[in-house]
Structures are given as C-alpha cells and as structure tokens.
Design a protein around this nucleic acid. Structure first.
Lengths: 348, 348
DNA sequence: TTGTAAGCGTTATCAG
DNA sequence: CTGATAACGCTTACAA
C-alpha cells in the first residue's frame, strides 16, 4: 500500500483499458459484470482512492470552501461551526483562515485560497478592510462569495448578517426603560459596518425617547477589552459622567466593568451596562451582564446554505441579504428597577 | 478577465509554444530576452496565475496542511493561531476541521482532507478516539502526521504536548501547600491521555505528601461545565466532603464553582479550587480562579515548525516528543492562607 | 533558443 | 461491452 494505487495500476493488472476500469468503478451501465467485479475487487484490495486533484483539474471544482474570518473568538468559532456543519453535509470541505484583523493578511489569505482553487469564499472582513479589490478579483473569476457577519456593503454579493441596528436599539431602549438618563456607547471602529449599525440603533432609541444624543458619550474604540477599559475610565472621569453604558461586544463590556469596579461604582445602581454577543462569561461575572445575543451557529448554517445554493446557482442571489434577529438577555448589570438598594444578593 | 488565463492562451497569442511560455515565466536561462519580455508582459496583462491544481498533480504536493481539532475552544483557537502563523510563513495554507469530539466525524474529516490531497496532517484527537487506524492509513501513504496537545500514544508520530503530569502536580501541590487536606479531582474521560496524565500528577503530589489517595475523590467526567457541576454537587454531598477541588479545565472549574456557590460555601475558606488553561474568564469571576496555564499559541507554533521540518524531512522525527511546561497562576480561589476570614475584599 | 511529446490521474467521446 | 484518444494546465526531457 505504498503509493496510492491508480486506475492505471488496476488496468494493467487486469489487462483492460483505463477507461473500462473507470467505468466499472463508477458503475456505468455498459460494463461486463465479470469485469466490473474483478475491477471492484482489485480496487478494494489496493485501497484505491480516486485522485481528487486529477478530477478537479478536469471538472474545475474542488468541493472546497475558503472561509476567511478576522479571528476565532467565541462567536466566530460558533459561526464557523455552523458553516462546517452544513458544508460537510453538502460534501464540501472547509478551509478556515484567520486574517487576524489585518487587511494585508486578508489579502494574502484570499490569494492563498485562490491558489488552492477553492470553489468559492465565505468571508467576514477584518476590521482594517475598507477596500474590496481583492474580493472583486475573485468574483471576476466567477468564484462565488458570500459575505457574513462583518459584511462590507461595497461588495456586490449575497450577505448574511445580524440586524445590528436592532441590537443596538434593544440595548439602549432597555437601559432607557430602566430609567437611565445619560447613556454612553462604546462603539467599534468607524469603518466596521457592524459597529456603525449598532450605534445607529442606539441613536434611534435615544431619539425616540427624546434624549439628546451627546457626541461626548459616543466612544469609537477598538473592539477589545483594554481599549474599552480605557475608554470607560475616560467616560467616568467626565464632570457629568454617564449613568449607563452600551457596548458592542462582551469583551468590551468586561473592559467597562473592570473600569467601573475600579471606580467603586455599583452596577446596576450607579451605572448600567449592556454587552453584546451573550458569551457565557456574561453570566459568570458579578454582577451578571445583560447582553444582546446573536444566533451565531445559526448564522453560520444559513450562510453556508446560501453558499451551496449559489454554487448550484441558477438564480441570481447577489442582491440577497438575510438578516437575523438579535435578542436581549437581561441580567443584573442593567436591572436598576429591580435592585433599589445595594443589595447583597448581587454578590455571591 | 473572464476565465483564468492559461499558458496556452499566452502561447497562442504570442505564436510560441507552451513550453517557451513556461520557461519564460519561470525565468529559465535559455530563453530569448525578447520573448521573455513579451511573455511576461502579456502574463501581467492577462493577470495570469499558474493553476496550482495542475502543478500539484505534477509535483504531488499541494502546500496545504490538514489540521484536525476536537473543537475551537479558547485554548484550541490559540493553538490553531500558532499553527497558522508558522504555516503561512512557510508558504502553507491550513485547512482546519473540527471533529466535534466525535470519532466518526474525525474519520470523515481525515478522509475529506486526504481527498483534498493535503500534504500532511496536524492532529489533536477527539475525546472518543482510541483507535488510530484512520491515521495509520494516512501514514501508509507517506503523508506526515504531527500529533499535538491531545496526543495518542498508539500512533508512531512526532508529538508536541504539555507536561500534563506536571500541570496536575502543580495544582495539587499548591492546594496542599495551602493546607487543604481532602483534595478531589475532576478528571476527564478515561481514554484521554491528557486527562490521565493530569490525574497522575495529582496523585503524585498527594503521595509525596503522604496523603492517602481516595478513589471517591476522583471523578471521571466529561470535559464540560455541566458535567463538572453535577460531579461537584455529588462531591459536596458526601459525608466527608472534599475541602479542595482540582479540575483539568477552566470550563470544569466554572461548573464546580457554580455548584460550590449554590452550596453557599466560600472560596477559598471552605473549599479551594484550581482550574486549568488559564482562560481570561478565570480572572473575571468572583473569586478569581487559580489556574494552570499552558502555552497554547507557542504550542501551535512549535507543532507547525515540527511539521515543516518533517516535510523537508531528511531526519526521522517519529520518536520526537516535545514537551512544554505549564505554569500555575495563583489567584483567590485557592489562597486560603491569605484570607483567614470571609473578607469582603473577595467580592467586589 | 525553441518546439515536440510525454506524463501527472481521470473522464468523455467516439469508434469498434 | 471495450479500447483509443483527447483533454484538463503545466513541466521537462529530448530533439531540432
């Protein structure tokens, strides 16, 4: 069982032509039962596996999907798992590459995957990405792209995303309902659609409730915990500090929480907090953090299904945009109405 | 720029043979400068990219590594990131597949990746895996395998792993140092080397300190939080309940913590707890959980390097086993000596 | 310096 | 029912 056996080996051993072997193997109808049996037996014995490379060269497809994601954080991992699930089922293998939030890395990844001749791409862009030339190049070569989660509007491709605007709205509206008046938001980078939309939702909630939008309460910072920590310290140092904070990720919420604890402010009494993603950690910290959940696994599945559909592609899906709904999970960090006093039930 | 341009297109356009084009493209020395210039210019214009499939078919390698992991949890994601880093640098693209802790899925993944003709494999086995036939099949076809993290001793392949025994030892010894007497352990499944080794370390620590090993205090349960929660409840219901618990993952530590809190026991006063992995969550919960750190990113890098070395493969590395050292991070959950009384400094 | 032809593993088309 | 032959895109002797 040294080198993989090929059709030729079988043909030679059986004194027939390669085409006969090929036919026998694929159960074509016009082959002598005797011959077929012999071929099948030998194939089994030699542990014959068709060389996919040769097939791909012939058929021009590899049954492989290139997935490019900015990182493999909790939510993204869940999305990837969803993609994986559906892809596997449909007979596709998935190549996952991380851009590490780097534009350059993303370009490199796309090139590498193109080289590997994936059949198409499923992409969530890096936070640095605001040009799409590298993706358009893919499309110009007729390879389908589906964009998900961090979509990029400039690209003409089917999209699957969360209703981020609604997510931001839900968070802010909830804080308003709880009686908070000066609500700040830790938004992400300016060029991320995902951040802007969540911020839009926040703004809409304020406006609908006739609360003036205060630019000073909008912090555009990096997605991560440390930046959020710093930004929150800034917010809390203001003369008129906010009495609630929306964030667009749980990681940022954690950063904010750390800054809040450092200031010895009590949640939800002195200040309210809402995260985003509904990671398990939100119900592990004290107080537990309210958070907007996105159906990550589901999103992955939907995206992969869309991709498969596109591959089979009769219909034009380029205008398709599937929007999934977020859901707010209310926990301690924002329920001011429930806890009038600094009750000890909050800290176990 | 419709279909990818091929060497033939260039040849036809320039009225030369494909071999000339091929040579010109690869800067072979025996080609007319004029011709070469023309070829290069046209290639550029047509955005010519060599078809890797054809090359692979010819050269029998794809510059692709198949990575199979049981899941994409925090630590694993970090390892994958490390692998990715090194692989990319070395010109390899990585195909990450999750087995979802399923033996069947793992087999499917290996077959798929073999079909995709990856050059070799980097593998961390599923918790269900105790047969290695599917891996031996790979090896019989001369594809290199490097096993990492969850290694499987039955397989004759280079291995990269944590000194799990030491990890377990560190945790238990620390608890002993803190004066805990009845130390339980939540170990993982029996067939996971990783679990057994950590348990061995725990046992060694007890023995070295002349503490009798009590079978009842050793719980073999699944890796996850819920099982750990249940197991801990059982432990705490014993007539002579343990006064400290070692776990082999932070997820399990969290499960244990939940059960402990439910019982209204105080950490570290009434009971000590140590986790494993040093995930960020350990310092976010109250009390903060001591945990054994493994250099995950580093492990990924080392593994990939070993793989690359194996590919270039002159030397026989099959006996190689690289062992990385864990490090204990001591936090509140186990520092009994520091906190004599149920001080409020523990809960913010 | 260039072209021809064979080969990588497979399938499809067309004769026989 | 079976066998040549060409083709997928590329490289590489070998010949010219």
């Amino acid at each position: 069982m040294e080198k993989q056996a090929t059709i030729k080996d079988i043909a030679r051993a059986l004194q027939v032509s390669t085409s006969t072997v090929s036919r026998a193997l694929r159960n074509a109808n016009d082959v002598n039962p005797e011959t077929r049996k012999a071929v099948l037996a030998l194939a089994e014995e030699l542990n014959y596996q068709p060389n996919q490379l040769a097939l791909s060269l012939l058929n021009k497809h590899t049954h492989t999907i290139g997935v490019i994601v900015p990182n493999l954080d909790y939510v993204v991992a869940a999305m990837v798992k969803g993609i994986d699930e559906v892809a596997l089922e449909a007979g596709y293998t998935v190549m996952v590459c991380q851009s590490n939030e780097s534009y350059g890395r993303e370009i490199l990844n796309t090139r590498r995957l193109m080289d590997s001749l994936v059949d198409g791409f499923i992409i969530s862009v890096s936070s640095e990405t605001n040009m799409v030339d590298h993706f358009k190049k893919i499309q110009s070569q007729k390879k389908p792209i589906v964009v998900f989660d961090r979509i990029i509007t400039e690209l003409n491709a089917p999209k699957v995303r969360l209703d981020n605007e609604l997510g931001g709205y839900l968070a802010a509206q909830h804080l308003i309902d709880q009686g908070y008046k000066r609500i700040a938001i830790l938004a992400g980078q300016k060029n991320l659609d995902i951040s802007n939309k969540r911020m839009d939702g926040y703004i809409r909630a304020l406006k609908e409730n006739n609360i003036k939008v205060d630019k000073d309460l909008i912090m555009q910072c990096d997605f991560n915990q440390d930046y959020a920590y710093v930004a929150t310290k800034e917010l809390l140092a203001m003369k008129k500090r906010p009495d609630a904070i929306c964030t667009i990720s749980d990681r940022m919420a954690i950063g904010a929480m750390l800054a809040i604890k450092e200031k010895k402010l009590r949640m939800p009494h002195d200040i309210g907090l809402v995260g985003f993603n509904n990671e398990p950690v939100t119900s592990l910290v004290t107080p537990m953090i309210s958070s907007v959940e996105q159906p990550a696994f589901e999103m992955g599945k939907v995206t992969a299904k869309l991709f498969i559909e596109m591959m089979h592609g009769n219909t034009d899906l380029s205008e398709t945009e599937i929007v999934l709904k977020p859901k707010l999970f209310v926990r301690e960090s924002s329920q001011r109405l429930l806890y009038k006093s600094p009750s000890s039930t909050l800290t176990v």
